[in-house]
Simulated assay, not measured.
Amino acid sequence: MKEKKLSTKAVLIEIIMFLAYAFFAVNWISGSNLTPKILEVFNIKGPNAVSLINNVVTVAKILGNLIAATIFTKLYPKKSIALGAFLVPAGALLAALSPSFPIFLIGRFIMGFGGALFVVYFSPVVVNYFHADHRPVVNALNNVSYNVGSIMALLLLGPVMKIVGLGRYALVVFACVSFAIFIGWMIIGEDFAITETGDKDEKDFTLIDAFKEKIAILMPLMYFGHLTMYMVMLNIFPNTNFSPIPANLISTLFTTGALIGTLLSIFVAKKSKKRVPVLRVAGILTTAIMLALVNTTNATLASILALALGTIMYVPLTNFVLIPQEIPGMYSERLTQIMSVYWALVYIFETIAYQVIVNIQFRMGDKVALIATGILSGTFIIGSFLMKEPEEWAKK
Score class of each variant (00 low, 15 high):
residue 78 K to I: 12
residue 70 T to K: 05
residue 68 A to H: 13
residue 76 Y to W: 04
residue 73 T to Y: 06
residue 67 I to Y: 15
residue 73 T to H: 11
residue 62 I to Q: 03
residue 83 L to V: 01
residue 74 K to H: 08
residue 70 T to F: 10
residue 64 G to K: 06
residue 78 K to R: 14
residue 83 L to G: 01
residue 65 N to F: 10
residue 75 L to K: 05
residue 91 G to Y: 06
residue 81 I to P: 03
residue 76 Y to L: 14
residue 65 N to A: 05
residue 87 L to S: 01
residue 89 P to G: 02
residue 67 I to C: 14
residue 62 I to R: 03
residue 60 A to H: 03
residue 62 I to Y: 08
residue 68 A to G: 08
residue 69 A to M: 15
residue 60 A to P: 13
residue 75 L to C: 07
residue 84 G to P: 11
residue 76 Y to A: 08
residue 84 G to C: 04
residue 91 G to F: 08
residue 59 V to K: 03
residue 59 V to T: 07
residue 89 P to C: 03
residue 63 L to N: 06
residue 79 K to Q: 06
residue 61 K to A: 02
residue 73 T to S: 13
residue 59 V to I: 15
residue 76 Y to G: 01
residue 82 A to N: 09
residue 69 A to T: 06
residue 78 K to C: 11
residue 76 Y to F: 11
residue 82 A to G: 05
residue 74 K to P: 13
residue 84 G to S: 02
residue 68 A to Y: 09
residue 59 V to Y: 00
residue 86 F to V: 02
residue 60 A to Y: 01
residue 86 F to Y: 07
residue 76 Y to K: 04
residue 63 L to S: 11
residue 66 L to S: 12
residue 59 V to R: 01
residue 61 K to Y: 15
residue 70 T to H: 09
residue 76 Y to E: 13
residue 81 I to S: 11
residue 79 K to M: 13
residue 70 T to Y: 15
residue 60 A to G: 08
residue 63 L to P: 10
residue 85 A to F: 00
residue 69 A to Q: 02
residue 67 I to N: 13
residue 84 G to E: 03
residue 83 L to S: 03
residue 66 L to H: 07
residue 88 V to L: 07
residue 75 L to I: 05
residue 63 L to K: 05
residue 64 G to S: 09
residue 80 S to Y: 09
residue 84 G to T: 01
residue 69 A to C: 13
residue 88 V to Q: 04
residue 83 L to W: 03
residue 80 S to E: 08
residue 77 P to T: 01
residue 90 A to H: 11
residue 66 L to I: 15
residue 84 G to R: 00
residue 91 G to K: 00
residue 66 L to M: 14
residue 59 V to P: 02
residue 86 F to P: 08
residue 77 P to A: 02
residue 86 F to D: 01
residue 79 K to D: 04
residue 61 K to L: 12
residue 72 F to S: 02
residue 73 T to C: 13
residue 60 A to I: 00
residue 82 A to I: 10
residue 71 I to N: 05
residue 72 F to L: 03
residue 81 I to W: 06
